[in-house]
């Protein structure tokens, strides 16, 4: 494995990558916001945004400008420091995992040999932001949301880790590039269907999306942890959520759906990114469809589901995988 040596050319490479990733991240949030509204509209048999641009394609940009122009309201008696830090805290950790995700064979900011662990650890930092936001808001509904977020995150990180581990057992590496490389012949979704299912379910819960959107359960907690946020503070949470979804979907694509692999394209080592994005957006489409179809589960049902079903099943899955790999 390579040692981490930050030489000037490597530094420049990283800088460029970070800039591209941050700009992509905003673009992704805009695209996802548009897709979400359009898909939701079509699920509900209505046209959705139609006014700004062709079929409302510029709607989210206009919304973004509006949110930028809004005052960041700080309510009475909140913890000012925490209240201001929380949106940034939710935004920062979602940038970093994108650095290690292999978009195609040669398009990867940096291939860490512990890439998978890095992504999971960054995902855990994200829940800190929700806790800080809920705690700092001086609002009981926000506090409920924050507490639910923490309990949910702890419950669902375990099945996520265990389902990832099943893949790691099969290819003996934590490096995302090598995991994708190992799927040249057959995607792991066919070898590990149970792990894939567990990962997708737990992933939806990890990103706080309906039917597991308990931290912001609108009909119960008004808006959960971001009840008190307005303007850019709110939109940073919003972008954070969409980027989180993107990361969960792209890790699923890397681990189970063969990353950049697909029918041969010219300049395959670069254009593999097309297959990668198709897979990621297919998963995101699924997540959006689920959100607009199902009611919300109750909190204790959600935790029971995680501890009584997902965790035991993923343990069994790991056991079977370990035995089969040893054979």
């Amino acid at each position: 494995m390579e040692t981490i040596s930050i030489l000037p050319p490597e530094l420049i490479r990283m800088l460029i990558a970070v800039i591209i990733i941050i700009s992509f991240l905003f673009l992704n949030a805009i695209m996802m916001g548009y897709l979400e509204r359009k898909i939701a509209a079509h699920v509900q048999r209505r046209p959705g945004p139609m006014e700004v641009g062709f079929h409302g394609i510029l709607q989210l940009i206009v919304d973004g400008v509006k949110l930028l122009g809004k005052e960041l309201l700080i309510p009475f008696k909140v913890d000012r420091t925490l209240f201001r830090v929380a949106p940034l805290l939710s935004f920062t950790p979602v940038i970093l995992p994108l650095l290690v995700i292999p978009f195609s064979e040669k398009l990867q900011a940096r291939d860490l040999n512990l890439g998978l662990i890095f992504i999971v650890s960054m995902g855990s930092v994200n829940v800190m932001a929700l806790l800080v936001a809920g705690w700092g808001s001086n609002n009981k509904y926000a506090m409920f949301g924050a507490m639910r977020a923490v309990a949910q995150s702890i419950a669902f990180e375990i099945p996520i880790l265990l389902s990832m581990l099943a893949v790691v057992l099969m290819c003996n590496t934590f490096s995302l590039k090598e995991i994708v490389g190992a799927q040249e012949k057959i995607w792991f979704v066919f070898l590990q269907p149970l792990a894939f299912l567990i990962y997708v379910i737990a992933g939806v819960a990890e990103t706080n999306r309906a039917p597991f959107d308990l931290p912001e359960a609108e009909s119960e907690l008004t808006a959960g942890f971001h009840t008190e946020y307005s303007g850019m503070g709110f939109s940073l949470f919003f972008i954070g959520e969409y980027t989180n979804m993107f990361i969960v979907a792209s890790v699923a694509a890397v681990l189970f759906l063969g990353g950049w692999h697909g029918p041969h394209l010219p300049y395959g080592e670069y254009l593999g990114i097309v297959w990668f994005f198709l897979k990621v957006y297919f998963l995101l489409f699924l997540m959006i469809m689920i959100r607009w179809t199902y009611p919300r589960v109750r909190f204790d049902q959600l935790l029971n589901f995680a501890w009584k079903y997902l965790v035991p099943f993923s343990f069994v899955n790991i056991l079977i995988t370990a035995v089969l790999v040893k054979l």
Partner: peptide
């Protein structure tokens, strides 16, 4: 109230 958005529009 139960968190499903679509039925109300139907």
């Amino acid at each position: 109230d139960l968190g499903a958005f679509t039925p109300i529009l139907y």
